[in-house]
Design a protein around this nucleic acid. Structure first.
Length: 575
RNA sequence: GGUUCGGUAGCUCAGCUGGAUAGAGCAUCCGCCUUCUAAGCGGACGGUCGAGAGUUCGAAUCUCUCCCGAAUCACCA
């Protein structure tokens, strides 16, 4: 087994817990191993109680003494020279770091590494395809898609920060029986010019009308089925219409992705796998996994405690999972991934369990590297969003509202701001993205426009604003010849320095848990610490710590910008 | 009914592998712009951590039972 100290050392940043283990070892070495000591060290809630603490409860039994007494005895025995002080507080041994040395080291590291601060190469450049966004052609992008898009994008950035090579795949919903309906509707009521003018809305209108009218004219369903059949058989008219709908839809999707500042590495959607499913069926057959059940072809998954996976319908048509099997295999062959992520809503949990189970049954060990990154539902007035019932919240509208509001705020608070339009976009869109990412992925939330576009409190604009203030100070400070003498004696700076030091661990945790919210929460914490410092200490005073304070401000700006970047949020220098 | 995820302050949520008086933001009320951007800072108010039992020196956190809510459970994606 690899010694944990080696890995701790290889991180490149100072591990203060390690320092504490070294200090405690002479006193506790005969009762606890290094890693046991390391594991017990905790961070007190309040900084009054020190920066790290070691609870002595566990030793009480072995030593048959009261924890308080043990704490008192231990501090007598250990070398305290590395710390500002070490004190026994009841059953705890509290360690106070040498603040100036700690601060100087953190600042020096950040200023040297700049935006690379917090990066690591844990991923070894391994490929990680990320299935994300994946809207359906001819349907508008709603708040529901925002989650997958924004979480996927952030995870791509986080994985990259951890040394992986993410590949963002927009698995478009560009195939299925709905295209038969769409073509039917278009042929009956549509026109080329209408679609060109406003593709998504018009196509949606046709689709909705189809569903309205087919209640009374069931023959429409037959026509639609025929058209889809034609499409499957490669009929020229059907194929051309399909291609055209797809292109027009994609164009309007891209406008939204532009607003969000998100790009993709692949737009291979469901249709791409049309000719790749036969192989899957064949493989399943060869391995004897396919069974007939009620006229359909299924893979039994009882040993996984799952329902059978339906591979082929009674009529011989394939299903969603068949396509996803083909996609999974294609991605494995194409990217030889170390992990394959699917940022898809929690309602599809069962599907992904089945997908992984079938792949496992097929003998593909890499099934274990597939992770369903699920997220909670966005509801409207407590109900699930649904295009057909008209209960939709269009993402584009939300983004526009947010940008308008940001514009209004700028007019009020900073009317002289140059490039106000651009800043309004960055702030408005940033608010929406941040709102989506600040809470744990799996939480569901009910859509509330006021909350989404809020700029005060724990929001994206709060973080942006904090950094803009930092930048403003730096502008006023002018050129700094050289950052040396980085010791800061001001205790108001302490929380900020500690937060800065935490960033590399936060980056790792976010990747381990596939949780952008870890970064968002961190950004809020750092911004908060900095605002407090800003409010209580004058930075641009001419004394011998001025450079050190500016180094702190610069470091805060660097790390906040980087944290926001990992969320896909921009950092305006002024706002 | 089975499975999964939730239930923490009026509202929205934190709380890392169990640890020192349970934390934020919003809302409400009160202070702070002759100092670096008030999209800010400080303070007040506010909680039987769904209920009960268990493990433990110690439980919001782990185990079990129950209550409540959501998602899902083969021919949609």
């Amino acid at each position: 087994m690899r010694d944990f100290f080696i890995s701790a050392e290889s991180e490149g940043t100072m591990d203060y817990k390690k320092m504490i283990v070294a200090a405690l070892k002479p006193a506790l070495g005969e009762y606890l191993s290094d890693s046991e000591i390391y594991g017990k060290i905790e961070i007190p809630k309040e900084s009054k109680m020190g920066d790290y603490a070691f609870p002595t409860f566990t030793l009480a039994k072995v030593l048959r003494k009261a924890p308080q007494m043990i704490a008192n005895e231990v501090i007598e025995k250990i070398d305290q020279s590395q710390f500002e002080k070490v004190e026994a507080a009841g059953p705890y041994i509290n360690f106070f770091l040498d603040k100036t040395a700690f601060g100087a080291e953190v600042l020096e590291t950040i200023l040297a590494q700049k935006e690379n601060y917090g990066s690591n190469d844990e991923g070894n450049n391994g490929n990680v395809p990320i299935d994300m966004s994946s809207p359906n052609i001819a349907k508008p992008i709603s708040m529901g898609h925002l989650r997958s898009t924004v979480i996927g994008n952030s995870l791509a950035l986080i994985m990259n920060k951890n040394g992986y090579n993410p590949i963002k795949i927009n698995h478009l919903g560009d195939w299925g029986t709905q295209f038969g309906k769409l073509i039917t509707a278009y042929k009956l009521w549509g026109s080329e010019s209408e679609v060109k003018a406003d593709p998504i809305n018009k196509l949606l209108e046709y689709y909705v009308r189809f569903h309205k009218e087919d209640v009374e004219k069931p023959e429409l369903d037959d026509i639609a089925r025929d058209w889809f059949k034609k499409l499957e058989d490669g009929d020229e008219e059907a194929t051309n219409l399909w291609k055209w709908f797809r292109e027009e839809s994609l164009k309007s999707f891209k406008q939204i992705y532009d607003k969000l500042g998100i790009t993709f590495d692949s737009y291979k959607g469901e249709a791409f796998y049309n000719d790749k499913m036969d192989e899957i069926v064949q493989l399943l057959e060869d391995k004897g996994l396919l069974k007939e059940s009620q006229g359909a072809q299924v893979v039994d998954l009882e040993k996984y405690n799952l329902n059978p996976a339906l591979i082929k319908k009674t009529d011989g048509a394939t299903l969603y999972i068949t396509r996803d099997l083909a996609a999974a295999l294609y991605r494995y062959r194409t990217y030889n991934f170390v992990q394959s992520l699917y940022v898809v809503g929690a309602e599809q949990t069962n599907h992904f369990k089945q997908l992984k189970a079938v792949l496992k049954e097929m003998g593909f060990e890499w099934s274990d590297d597939i992770h369903h990154i699920q997220f909670g539902l966005i509801t409207l007035n407590g109900k699930k969003l649904s295009t057909r019932s008209g209960r939709v919240v269009l993402l584009d509208e939300v983004l526009n509202d947010a940008v308008d509001l940001a514009q209004k705020q700028i007019n009020e608070k900073n009317p002289e701001l140059e490039g106000a339009d651009e800043v309004a976009k960055e702030v408005g869109v940033g608010a929406v993205i941040f709102h989506d990412l600040k809470n744990e992925r799996t939480n569901s939330f009910d859509f509330n426009l006021e909350e989404v576009v809020r700029f005060e409190g724990e929001t994206g604009p709060y973080v942006q604003y904090s950094r803009a203030r930092a930048e403003s100070i730096l502008r006023k400070a002018g050129e700094i010849a050289e950052f040396d003498q980085l010791e800061i004696s001001d205790s108001n700076a302490w929380d900020t320095l500690k937060a800065l030091q935490e960033f590399p661990n936060i980056v790792k945790r976010a990747a381990d848990q596939y949780e952008p919210s870890v970064i968002a929460k961190y950004a809020l914490g750092l911004a908060k610490a900095f605002n407090k410092y800003y409010a209580n200490s004058k930075i641009l005073t001419d004394d011998n710590e001025r450079t050190a304070r500016l180094a702190l401000v610069k470091s805060v700006s660097i790390v906040l910008e980087e944290a926001l970047r990992l969320l896909g949020v921009k950092s305006p220098d002024e706002m």
